[in-house]
Design a protein around this nucleic acid. Sequence first.
DNA 1: TTATTAATTGTCGTTTTGACAATTAATAAT
DNA 2: ATTATTAATTGTCAAAACGACAATTAATAA
Lengths: 232, 232
Amino acid sequence: MIEYSRQPHYLVAVDCIVFGFDGEHLKILLVKRGLEPEINKWSLMGGFVGPDESPDDAANRVLKKMTGLEGVYLEQMQIYGEPHRDPIERTLSVGYFALIDIHKYEAQLNDDYEAEWFLINERPKLIFDHNQMVIDARKKLRYKAALHPILFEMLPKKFTIPQLHILFEEVNDTKIDTRNFSRKITSTGLLIKLAEKDRTGSKKGAFYFKLDKKKYAANAQAFLNLVPNLKV
Amino acid sequence: MIEYSRQPHYLVAVDCIVFGFDGEHLKILLVKRGLEPEINKWSLMGGFVGPDESPDDAANRVLKKMTGLEGVYLEQMQIYGEPHRDPIERTLSVGYFALIDIHKYEAQLNDDYEAEWFLINERPKLIFDHNQMVIDARKKLRYKAALHPILFEMLPKKFTIPQLHILFEEVNDTKIDTRNFSRKITSTGLLIKLAEKDRTGSKKGAFYFKLDKKKYAANAQAFLNLVPNLKV
DNA sequence: TTATTAATTGTCGTTTTGACAATTAATAAT
DNA sequence: ATTATTAATTGTCAAAACGACAATTAATAA
């Protein structure tokens, strides 16, 4: 029987930075950690990779368990593997960022876990290197969203261009001209205009749009350039 | 004493896709695997992550050991963690891609390891999921190189624009107009023109350029658009 | 001296960008 | 009913970038 003799073995975990958008600001979903050490401190949603699952599987499982949501947008970020990042025992963690519709979540909230949304800029102190993970995730989200149409994942099925606009500004931490923005976003051909209007935000009301799912699937990899003068 | 009871532990490895450029084609550096299983089969350069190093450290160590090179351009790609990807024992591997100056390597070749350059399109069958890693690395290289000035890492300190041009075409698997290319690449301000010419390739000769290292360091994150009509 | 070859610079119409103005569709105030 | 107000949407336009293609240049070989 062949074996890799004497090589050290480690724990492998996943941690998810879950982004949501409340209509005004970017938020992240945090949970109170349920095990020692640092029990009851705020942390990212995470868990160990089980023997019969890949890290991707594990991240999906953790998200399902803690939010009730399936099939969410999930992207592998990077591995966090400093030898002593976990004080108890060496644990390498694969960082993921997830984009979810914040309203969908609230409907399915599972109270087994003490979870809470925080404004990205007003988050509490996090355990271990989780704060760095959030910083990295925010950076990667910005980068990716500037080039690929992924922010839709944080909006309801029906959304307005002003909503999208605020979300883009929020993610990129910059002002974008509304007039140029709507022209650009509609010219992508990814949006289908609906007859209905959203009148909650203004007198005139803004038309609802929905994603052209076929084109979105085909163009999820396509390059856009929705943020002018982008600095990454 | 706190501990994470009964969680499974795994081996963690790194594997490096080492890219080089011989002046005409993109190549990758492969080694004959030195341990069972699959001993003597071609594989990527890799090794297990030691107890006192991060995966990044491990990748650098492996590269140093097998090529003699230090400080090479190295970028974390993704984790490969299917439960049975290694038939002997569960091993998760962090994939990296590296860009090196192929000539620098040849000078320092370490014969302890049977290593060989292969044309990217004529590589042998590789062990485990290493072929998929190469495919992923190629894709990521293309993506990254379209937006960031990283291909310089594969050229000598002094290089000509025609050399750069061929490299860009090779990486992106497309034809790029020489005239538009040289205008674009010089307009980045990243290149410093030298007095000397390379006369090996043509009668007229092509001027050598070198990188403006200050600007390169500042602009390594900057967006370029060197490949027209890019499809990723 | 001339032909040849590859590098380099130039031209120009089209498209994209982004700053900014004008119009429109609704509601609230008079 | 009319007017003011507000936010959404459509328009305008000059500057920049893009990309197809031509012309020039610097060398060597014939």
